[in-house]
């Protein structure tokens, strides 16, 4: 009984952190999708320089651990005069890293569309850009939903890493409470449950979207 009331008492603090967690996840997946689309288009481009730039990007941001990227952006960049708040550094790091993975997802999605689709679009007189925008990319939506849902959940969980650069998201809040009360079991258990609720929620949402887009197939 006492345990429960202790958790309830501190729940608002954790929930405030959970709001930051959701903000971070939503921002970085949205921005990361734009970055990813750009990188994906570069990587399938016939222009060598774009292709190499895209590959270079993926090589860096997929190859360095996210935690190291975050610490680098927040703690190392200031020494060359580039400063961000902890929250900004977190969004930037997660966007860049998420973008690298999303680029691969989108690239695979585009490559999975039958070649005849591009040919049919071009044969109508469309430009490459028109064909991509009107014909190819819309067809990837449905195929992108499952891996994108996966990526969203991964990013949501990865937000816990930004506690290391002092962003007061869910895990950080739990740590702070534990530091003052020293009741780690209650706080970390509750934090874990909240993470699970969030990821479950996103799973359900993505399943709904997937079913909706199943229309024409």
């Amino acid at each position: 009984m006492e345990t429960l009331s202790y958790i309830l008492k501190n729940l608002p603090i954790l929930l405030k952190g959970a709001v930051v967690t959701v903000e971070l996840a939503a921002l970085s997946i949205t921005l990361g999708t734009f970055v990813g689309l750009g990188i994906a288009l570069m990587k399938i481009s016939k222009m060598r320089i774009l292709k190499y730039l895209g590959q270079f990007y993926t090589w860096i941001f997929r190859g360095v651990p996210l935690l190291v990227q975050l610490i680098f952006i927040y703690l190392a960049l200031p020494s060359v005069g580039i400063e961000f708040t902890a929250f900004q550094a977190a969004v930037i790091g997660m966007t860049l890293c998420g973008g690298a993975y999303i680029a691969e997802i989108i690239r695979a999605g585009i490559l999975s569309i039958d070649k005849g689709q591009m040919e049919a679009a071009l044969s109508l007189g469309m430009t490459y850009v028109q064909a991509m925008r009107r014909v190819i990319i819309p067809q990837t939506y449905r195929r992108l939903i499952p891996p994108m849902g996966n990526e969203f959940i991964t990013l949501t969980k990865d937000t816990a890493l930004v506690s290391a650069i002092t962003v007061t998201e869910l895990l950080r809040r739990a740590q702070l409470v534990v530091a003052s009360d020293f009741r780690p079991f209650e706080m970390y258990f509750t934090a874990a449950v909240i993470y699970l609720i969030l990821t479950t929620f996103f799973t359900v949402v993505f399943n709904k979207i997937e079913n909706k887009l199943a229309l024409y197939e």
């Binding site: 039958d114 005849g116 689709q117 040919e119 049919a120 679009a121 071009l122 044969s123 109508l124 007189g125 469309m126 430009t127 009107r134 014909v135 819309p138 067809q139 024409y216 197939e217």
Partner: peptide, 28 residues
């Protein structure tokens, strides 16, 4: 693109746009 728009092409495997209705395919 300008010349292609004056040449109609019909493919062995149709290559209709699956995310569009028949009419949407035609007016695209």
């Amino acid at each position: 693109t300008q010349i292609r728009s004056q040449i109609g092409m019909v493919f062995q495997r149709f290559n209709l746009f699956p995310h569009m209705t028949a009419l949407e395919n035609v007016i695209e």
